[in-house]
Design a protein around this nucleic acid. Structure first.
Lengths: 130, 130
DNA sequence: TTATAAAACAGTAATCATTATCAGTTAGTT
DNA sequence: AACTAACTGATAATGATTACTGTTTTATAA
């Protein structure tokens, strides 16, 4: 028994996507909520969470886990690497090519199948380094 | 104004360390609590959390963040890489040498200082691949 | 267009991993 | 043995995320 669940457009989801696509920051759900309210003032936080999950599930955005207790979201859905600043806690994109050979190195060590990887750098961002 | 805070031994902290050093799993705080209770039956969950934080701060254990909503802990404090099984959700150590040159690649792209990195592989573990 | 059904919503309550609090206990020192 | 500060067990509080519910919106088609 399979059931197909249709997806309907919603102003709210489009506003959330617009927020994410117009920033290079990697906002938390709360920050996305604040920005989305500028477009749809009575949007609710639950709606933001629900749609962020949906967009992640659809592969339209990325969830970035940096271990600070918040989920961060990224409008750039292509796999790429991040820098987490240990001073200001901001998350930055790194202009490094996604390296599929890393998967091969791991693949040589296990019988199971390696599907992907996530690489996170910790250090000081340009701004905080000044 | 600096103040030195002394560290006192405690049976509880030693039991927690013993739990972590006797497993290759990467238990959550709750699991550490369950195991520690076998050694000290009336140990409290708060004590487990408090000492896990302390041990991480002291560099005696590692906190492994795999994005499943739980903190995982690792008695092996040397930097190394992990595989997260997408089927059973377990965390495994990978026998791959920690690659410092990855830091250099990132270092070439930023003005700030890259200090470390975390690399996490996703896929199927040996057991689930059968 | 209107009617209909299901998806999505706003508002709010519930969940639950983790942290904080606090009175009593323990380890280390004099 | 007495002192002091770190530590503990028990429990309450926190806070990000999820679930619930009655209402609204979207998409489809009569």
């Amino acid at each position: 028994m399979t059931q197909t669940i249709k997806v309907k457009r919603s102003r709210q989801r489009e506003a959330i996507l617009e927020v994410l696509n117009s920033t290079k920051a990697h906002p938390t759900a709360e920050r996305v909520y604040e920005e989305a309210k500028l477009i749809i003032p009575n949007i609710s936080l639950g709606t933001v969470y629900r749609n962020l999950s949906k967009l992640v599930g659809a592969g339209e955005i990325l969830k970035v886990d940096v271990g600070d207790g918040y989920d961060h979201f990224d409008g750039n859905s292509a796999p790429h690497y991040h820098l987490v600043c240990e001073k200001c806690a901001k998350v930055f994109d790194l202009d490094i090519k996604y390296d599929n050979t890393l998967n091969n190195i791991a693949q040589n060590k296990v019988k199971g199948k390696i599907n992907s990887h996530s690489l996170l750098f910790y250090g000081t961002c340009d701004e905080c380094a000044k």
